[in-house]
Design a protein around this nucleic acid. Sequence first.
RNA 1: GGUGGCGUAGUUCAGUUGGUUAGAAUGCCGGCCUGUCACGCCGGAGGUCGCGAGUUCGAGUCUCGUCGUCACCGCCA
Length: 585
Amino acid sequence: MYRTHTCGDLRISHAGQEVTLSGWVQRKRELGAMTFVDLRDRYGITQLVVDDQSSDDLKEAVHQLGREYVVQAKGIVRERSSKNDKIETGEVELAVTELNILNPAELPPFTIEDETDGGDDLRMKYRYLDLRRNPVRENLVLRSQMGHYTRAYLNEQNFIETETPVLIKSTPEGARDFIVPSRMNEGQFYALPQSPQVFKQLLMISGFDRYFQIVKCFRDEDLRADRQPEFTQIDCEMSFVDQEDILNTFEGLTRHLFKKVKDVEVTDFPRMPYSEAIANYGCDKPDIRFEMLIKDITALAQAKDFKVFNEAEFVGAICAKGAGSYTRKQLDELTNFVKRPQVGAKGLVYVKCNEDGTFKSSVDKFYDAEDLKAWAEATGAEAGDLILVLSGDKNPMLSALCDLRLEMGDRLGLRDKNVFKPLWVVDFPLLEWDEEAKRFHAMHHPFTSPKKEDYHLLESDPGAVRANAYDLVINGVEIGGGSVRIFDSELQAKMFDLLGFTPEEAKAQFGFLMNAFKYGAPPHAGIAFGFDRLVSLFAGLDTIRDVIAFPKNNSGRDVMIDSPSTVAEAQLDELNLALNMKEEK
RNA sequence: GGUGGCGUAGUUCAGUUGGUUAGAAUGCCGGCCUGUCACGCCGGAGGUCGCGAGUUCGAGUCUCGUCGUCACCGCCA
């Protein structure tokens, strides 16, 4: 038996017992005649003591110990003469009688501590060591718990957990597929699923009624802090439901998780139409922990002789509460922020609302106090506030104002990681115009149903048709999304037509689904939560990397196992593949 | 595909206007120390300044390229 207890178990009540512990050496403190060793496992740290009374062999053995050695220690639990109230086991120590070095360890490239001294590079290369650190392990424990509570909740709601295939078929819509060559079918390829979308719809047709799966999805697109090429979804689908049923069910799941995992009561799940989100927040995933709404002041701003505004399609403003005392330097920082190519504004106009009721702006030459007062009224600015104004083409400026708003939210401390504000964004457009391909593509996916009241626009103005689609946004993070599906093969055919598929192409790609619809498809709808994002939100992290045991870096590489990698010529041969690398310039 | 940040000891970082032998902390190694728990004290080792070219009498420092990494834009039904 390697151990009778873990390193987090022992308490004063164990005093006098003979126990055996196994773990890693966290740290050693040699005080001449006596030596203390902190022994660590995932449950905690227990102090081992070897003192003057011990045998020479034992003294020599403990002297040999280095960081991260794996050891087994047998001994008697005793009360400490000087206690440590910082750790759970701090009242006791193990007076070692027998010490086995189970495995020595080379010195790790970074020390295993909560506040690591290793950079991201090293941590990723030695991820198995990084995972020994408490903060990273705790993230994965959190993830495990959230998976557990998700399953428990959905089981309780009669959902059936069903696995769907990972080797499937490439489809033209959506993200790039990862493809996998088939040895037995020369020249043909599987694709890894971007999501189990069509399978879960087929399960509805099979009468499964309520399906869920915590499942890997794969998208071959560029990475971000919150995007990995393989990621995990809580994927669900329900039959005989409308949008309202889905929203209620998954509000329930979200509440359940917050309550069970964080002991936080989340009550409000407001609904906001997509159009309102864009107008007020400049994006489709507003952070509603704070107001600072975008106001259209185009008409007010164009009342005078300021060329920049007069030539702009749109002039928009936000009011930063209490920022009226911003210095020249701070305003310059904001100006540089909005002028970054990623934000894309040409410049920034500010209006300081002074405590004495006067205004100081960067456009005082063009606007008098009356004008600026009108701006203040429009933005809700009062004495002590700062109005920030951007102008230009409407859509880019809304997007820039969104960035600026979040920046100001950060600067003013309005984005508390311990406050959680969910929001349903609803009534998304059905279609999006793709300027490059000169055609529409589905904003959500091609199986999303249009709103009934917009059916009449399908022919005349497809871009204006709204969909029965919804996103769950929490604190400005898109946590999940879904839609009410089309369950009528004729409407589905119409949809493919709008997306520019010929009937033949549609049949080749999705014929199986349209066929299935002919055999009694129930009305159904679904949703998928980004599990990694949800966990990182709960963990208070900005990146999903640290809630994934073995993540990939910015360029989609696993630097630990060094993948992707080339394969042997023989493997390519077997698959009838030949490389066609582009010549280096 | 693009924009920007970073790259100096095992690690985290500092390094002045381009100027002598590149520093600190921590870690590591050795010694001393009987109640430490970020132990303490003394001593020691440890550097391809990512790589390559260029400018210069002289480059960690400036320029160009390249590689790695991070953040973002495009992209992500």
